[in-house]
């Protein structure tokens, strides 16, 4: 069967990209960082819920940054190898999807193991926080998938490495920092107008804000929810809000993957 064979080629490329990456020094550093962070937060804080909030603040900024940088560097570094793969009897989509899931997979593994080990040792399975913690990891995995594919897209469209790297870091800076600033400013500027749908839309359009809202909705900490979170909660209720923000994260992942594949099909290498 044809489709099955295509998937096999992709899985093989995924497997070897993954092998290559989990042996790199940076994967260990990334893993050890989370391991250390998890231990320090849990055993100094002694409070799983507080640890989860602190972790959320770290994950929401760090995961996108690392996903962006790893994604862009991997793509540029494997340029010649990609060319060798392009000359093999494989579909282009298998090559790029395989490499992409290899990168995103190894980063996600560092995150899940690095945070998972201390939490399990602390006795997570006996605690009520297990769902909150799982949601945190799922969100982290989504942010890895999203920012790695955004970086792959930028690298694919920019032959010039310096430019590509610059755009990728700017994208992170924009979504992680500048976006919130602009958002707040517009809330203040237009405070006389009804802003509910505006702030809902603005949150949906930024995967980082979306993740933050998602986790805070689940944790149900109104004090930390902020204006958007409150609107979200009022508008959708907690469950529907969770569902919709999860759906948006899926869209944020699927659409760039689709663009990656369709641009790669037409590109000259």
């Amino acid at each position: 069967m044809r489709p099955l064979q295509l998937d096999l080629a992709m899985l093989k490329i995924l497997k070897y990209s993954f092998y290559d990456l989990i042996r790199s020094r940076w994967s260990y550093v990334y893993f050890l960082f989370y391991l250390l962070l998890g231990f320090v937060l849990l055993f100094l804080n002694n409070d799983v819920s507080k640890a989860i909030i602190t972790l959320m603040n770290v994950i929401i900024l760090l995961v996108p940054l690392i996903g962006t940088i790893f994604g862009i560097m991997y793509f540029y570094n494997s340029k010649e190898f990609t060319e060798l793969l392009l000359a093999q009897p494989i579909k282009r989509s298998s090559i790029f999807l395989g490499q992409y899931f290899g990168v995103a997979g190894s980063l996600t593994l560092s995150l899940v193991l690095g945070l998972g080990i201390p939490f399990v040792l602390y006795g997570l399975f006996k605690s009520d926080a297990i769902f909150d913690f799982t949601l945190l990891l799922v969100t982290g995995a989504f942010l890895t998938l999203i920012f790695t594919v955004l970086a792959f897209n930028i690298a694919l469209s920019n032959e010039n490495k310096i430019k590509g790297f610059g755009y990728a870091v700017l994208l992170w800076l924009f979504l992680a920092v500048i976006y919130d600033g602009l958002f707040l400013m517009s809330l203040i500027l237009f405070k006389e107008y009804p802003l509910d749908s505006f702030s809902l839309g603005a949150t949906m359009l930024n995967p980082i804000d979306l993740s933050r809202t998602l986790i805070l909705l689940k944790l149900d900490i109104s004090a930390l929810l902020g204006y958007t979170g409150a609107v979200f909660k009022k508008f959708f209720g907690t469950d529907q809000g969770l569902l919709i923000s999860m759906l948006m994260l899926v869209l944020w992942t699927v659409l760039p993957i689709w663009r990656l594949v369709s641009v790669a099909k037409k590109k000259d290498f």
């Binding site: 070897y16 092998y19 290559d20 990456l21 190898f81 060798l84 000359a87």
Partner: peptide, 9 residues
């Protein structure tokens, strides 16, 4: 290919 460059690890 002209340039031999493979996954380093």
């Amino acid at each position: 290919p002209q340039i031999a460059n493979f996954p380093g690890n």
